[in-house]
Nucleic acid binder design. Sequence first.
DNA 1: TTCATTTCTTAATCTAGATTAATGCATGAG
DNA 2: CTCATGCATTAATCTAGATTAAGAAATGAA
Lengths: 192, 192
Amino acid sequence: MSYLYLTDFLNLKEISSDLQQELQTCIQVKEVKKGEIIISKGDLKHKKFYVRNGLLRSYIIDSKGREHIYMFAPEGWVVSDLVSLTGNQPAIMFVDALEDSTLEVIDDERIWKLKDRFPELMTSESDRMLRRIAVLQQRVIMLLSASAQERYEAFLTKYPDLIQRIPQKMIASYLGVTPEALSKIRANMSKS
Amino acid sequence: MSYLYLTDFLNLKEISSDLQQELQTCIQVKEVKKGEIIISKGDLKHKKFYVRNGLLRSYIIDSKGREHIYMFAPEGWVVSDLVSLTGNQPAIMFVDALEDSTLEVIDDERIWKLKDRFPELMTSESDRMLRRIAVLQQRVIMLLSASAQERYEAFLTKYPDLIQRIPQKMIASYLGVTPEALSKIRANMSKS
DNA sequence: TTCATTTCTTAATCTAGATTAATGCATGAG
DNA sequence: CTCATGCATTAATCTAGATTAAGAAATGAA
């Protein structure tokens, strides 16, 4: 039954049964509990994870010991420390589960080898990268130009379904403000 | 003589003369003067530009009329409003020249058509996207976790050659601070 | 259920960086 | 060369959001 998820992961409408079968050997299903850490800073052979269901987050811990959330990954998203991973570097981020989740561990090297025979894999990867760039671009623009309240409002609009699933203090961290500041903003907003 | 540049753009060591010839038809050299605007917000059929030499920047203008620099593009870089471009949307950014520059205007649709015959084009594009993601990731992390001074110091380290070429107020804009704040930071730094 | 641990909220301060404003310097156009 | 416009600097204020602290509400483990 995981064919469905793979197709989704690859963002391909049509997928040949040949490719389907090959891809089966490139993924491995993994169940994780809420709170479980999947990638730690320093990990060397970390992986890419497709979220079948549940919710993950990736975050850094800065030099002063503060946590900053880089992204959330609900169902359908892929998380990893992409930059470290492709550069064969130790991870600089942590990834953990905010909910019990079902993941597909992606064996990227194996998929890489299929690219000659299935060029559509390249297209799919480009698509996914472009979407990541779009998210990051928007994030940079918001951090540069919008107030804390504006960033929160944009988050509400963009990810309305995530609000109920993520503790406020983590949304605050994602937005680059303290939990206290976000609380004040919310109080203000509900007044007017 | 522009073969050299194309090869560089594609990030390929070896390039077949067949591909080389095809690529010639996909680029067009363009000279721009300092101050010239190359992409404006709202533009529909905007392009991708490879900077052969010179220096460009891309920036947005927010709802309050403030300018925020999204990136600088010195020689060897590619600029465009990538997200809008691939989504066939009107540009949300401006791109202009900070120095007289020589550009290669890239006809992406035409290159796209070559991808079946030259799969190495896909690899090259993926590489470039990944590097863009790496830059954006670092930018988000800095904006979330570092003080204005720390961001400036990181900029100095990462782009030492750009300092002399870019007015201070534009570096300030890139870092997300006012020119006055950056000036104070620099005064502080030179004291100690 | 009960207790302990987080999370959220409110409030009093504090501070990095914004705003405003004035001055001296470059730089480029004529 | 001269003037005008924009750039960098300094300084006086102001403010969004940080910090600190404490209590209330929610969550979770035993």
